[in-house]
């Protein structure tokens, strides 16, 4: 990749998805874009970028930007988050809303590890008397397809996933493992760019968006956060990763990563 190639990808990533991509990180760019170039039939990343530039190819440009978006690769990352959801937040909602529907959203689901961790935990102990709907989205079409298939390599299933859960929820498949249809079918998928209007997605009781904010430019971060905040149902919670914060929301006591509207957070405390 030439410096001009790297600048173009950084600019497109910023314009289209608010992503902060450092054009000096040649290795990262090459690493993320090489599979895109290969799939699209280009001999090199440089050829891919040249096609984006010269043909003004919108679809290709998106494939490149999507590949630059951050992705999550461990199951049950920050395990306390999942304990909170399953043993505190959901039973609480179920009690206050008998017969109702609880909506959860993994807003940058990457390879699906986060949302499937939720789904597995839910399938083991789902709150009584309510319907739980689980949604997952990502910017990257390709990652969504992979996530939806629920197939993971031997390396992937050993990051954060207990052996007991592996034998309970997975079957062997070729060189890897596939998640049971029962758990996979709990999740509904959609490609979402968090920079766009999120109101069409409806409202959620819980939105997980971990490990994303740090990869966004400042303006984009504010925009994404306010978009996510508006998707929160009354009393809803936004769950961020360790060290991430939302200026418009207050952290919830004793639930690391959980944020709510100030009044709601006080009421719960």
């Amino acid at each position: 990749m030439t410096p001009q190639d790297r600048e173009l990808i950084a600019r497109l990533s910023a314009e289209r998805a608010g992503l902060r991509v450092d054009p000096d990180k040649t290795y990262l760019l090459e690493n993320r874009l090489a599979p895109v170039a290969r799939r699209e039939g280009f001999a090199s990343v440089h050829d891919l970028v040249a096609a984006i530039r010269d043909r003004d190819d919108d679809r290709l440009a998106w494939r490149a930007v999507e590949a630059m978006s951050p992705t999550e690769t461990a199951f049950f990352r920050e395990p306390r988050t999942f304990e909170c959801v399953v043993s505190e937040v959901l039973p609480d909602l179920a009690m206050r809303r008998p017969g109702g529907t609880i909506r959860l959203w993994s807003a940058a689901c990457g390879g699906g590890q986060e949302v499937y961790s939720l789904a597995m935990a839910l399938s083991e102990s789902s709150p009584p008397g309510v319907t739980v709907e689980v949604f997952a989205s990502d910017l990257c079409e390709r990652r969504l397809e992979k996530a939806q298939a629920g197939v993971y390599s031997q390396f992937e299933v050993q990051r954060g996933l207990s052996a007991r859960r592996l034998v309970t929820h997975f079957e062997s498949l070729d060189d890897g493992f596939v998640l049971s249809p029962r758990v996979r079918q709990m999740v509904r998928w959609r490609r979402v760019n968090l920079m766009e209007d999120l109101s069409r997605l409806g409202q959620f009781d819980l939105v997980l968006c971990r490990g994303v904010l740090g990869h966004l430019l400042e303006d984009a971060r504010a925009r994404v956060l306010s978009g996510l905040e508006r998707t929160l149902a009354p009393g809803g919670r936004l769950v961020l990763g360790a060290g991430e914060s939302a200026p418009g929301l207050s952290p919830v006591a004793d639930r690391p990563g959980f944020h709510g509207r100030a009044s709601a957070a006080r009421a719960a405390a």
Partner: peptide, 20 residues
């Protein structure tokens, strides 16, 4: 051993975790 039946029998025998 990465056969899930083997993993299961190790856990049932009292193993706490399993690395392939």
């Amino acid at each position: 051993e990465n056969d899930l039946d083997r993993v299961r029998s190790a856990l049932d025998a009292g193993a706490d975790e399993y690395i392939m």
